[in-house]
Design a protein around this nucleic acid. Sequence first.
DNA 1: TAGATTGTTAATCGATTAACAATC
DNA 2: TAGATTGTTAATCGATTAACAATC
Lengths: 207, 207
Amino acid sequence: MTRTKKVPPVAIRRISLYARQLALLDLNNITIVSSTELAEACNVNSAQIRKDFAYFGEFGIRGTGYYVKDLLSELRKALGLHKQWRLVLVGAGHLGTALAGYLVSLNQGYIFVKAFDRDPEKIGRYMGSIPIFSVENLEQETKRIKADIGIIATNDGTAQECANSLIRGGVRGILNFTPVKLKPSDDIQIEQVDFSIRLDSLCYKLS
Amino acid sequence: MTRTKKVPPVAIRRISLYARQLALLDLNNITIVSSTELAEACNVNSAQIRKDFAYFGEFGIRGTGYYVKDLLSELRKALGLHKQWRLVLVGAGHLGTALAGYLVSLNQGYIFVKAFDRDPEKIGRYMGSIPIFSVENLEQETKRIKADIGIIATNDGTAQECANSLIRGGVRGILNFTPVKLKPSDDIQIEQVDFSIRLDSLCYKLS
DNA sequence: TAGATTGTTAATCGATTAACAATC
DNA sequence: TAGATTGTTAATCGATTAACAATC
C-alpha cells in the first residue's frame, strides 16, 4: 500500500464504515453500488466518499459505479485487514466477553489468542474458545504468542499497568476501553473508546 | 444556559473529557488547575481548552487558573449533567451489563430505570437493582416511566425496531452500541458508538 | 509592582463539498 | 452517441493554535 498523501484519521474511520456497509450489500447479493447510494446508506456526502477512496486508488467505473466485492476487498486491504491480527484481551468480565464475541463474529482478520484476568475463579477457564490466563503473566504470554494488539477492558483502574505489560510484551497497538488516559508511548498506537463521553454529548444535545 | 455561538461537537466531547479529569483532580484534593496543566493531563492544546471553555463563559482567574470544584460544576452544567437523566437499557447481555455498571458507577446524573431483553430466562430478574422486562413491552414501559434516553446494546440485529419502540415511547435520545445504522428521526438525537471502526483504525495505523 | 495565566483575536491549518471534465 | 457516474479541482467551511492584551 503506497500512500502519497497523508490520510486523515476521520477518513480512515469512514472507510471502515463503508467496508461494513459493503459487506452488508454483498450479503444481500448486490453487485454494484454508486457513490450516491453508498453515501445514502452511510449518511455522508457522495463527494466525500469518492475523495476518501481516492486516497488509496481508483476503484470505480465511470458511468457505472463500483463492484461491491472488488471495492470491499480493496478497502479491507487499504485498512490492513487482509492480514490476520493476533489480539489479546485484558479483562475477561462482561465488557471483555461482549467485545471478544462481537469482534470475532465480524469474521475479519481478528483472532483472540488469549484472555487475561486477575480473578482466580476465571483463570484456567475459557471464554468460548479463548483460554483465560492470570494477568500476572500478561507480559510473558503476550511475548510468547507474538500478539499484535492488546485490548484493555478491565474495570479495576489498572489500565496503565496493563498497557505497560502489553508494551513490554511487544504489542504495537492498544485499544483501550477504560476511561484511564494511557501515557503515550513511542511506536505504540493507542486508540481510546470512551462511552461516557458519548452519553454526555447526547445529554448536551438534549439540554 | 445561553449559547451565542454554535458549539462544535468535538468541543463538547473534549469538555466531557475535561470534566472527568477535573473530577479526578478533585478526588485528589487538588483545588486549582491551570489550562496548561489540564491540557497536559488531557493531551490537548491549552489554547484549545480555554477556547472550549469560552463557549460557555469565563470560569478562570487570570494569573491563577481555575478552581477545580467550580470549573467542574460549571462544565457539568454546560453539558446538562446537573439534571437527572432517566435511562432505559435495551439488551441485558454482557455489553448491557457492563455499560450499566460503568455508567452508574460514574455517579453522574444517570439512573437506569429499567432494562429490557427478549430472553424469557432474564425477564423478571434483576441486574443489580435494575429490573429486566420483556422487550415486547419496551414502548409502553418507556412511556410509563418517562425515560429520557434509551441505550441499545442488543446483538440480534433488532436495533432499528428497538429504536422505533423507544421513539414511540417518547425518548429524546438514543445511544446505539450496535453496528446497525439507525434511520435518523426528527427531534431524536442519536449517538453511535462503534467498536470495530476503532479497531480497524488501529490496524490501519499499524500497517 | 512583577509574575502569571486567562480570554480572545487573527492566522494557520485541515476537512468538506459543489462543480465539472474525464470517461465508461 | 447519450446518459451516467467517477475522479479531481477549487472554493468553502470549520477547527486549531500562536500570540498577546487584559487582568488577577
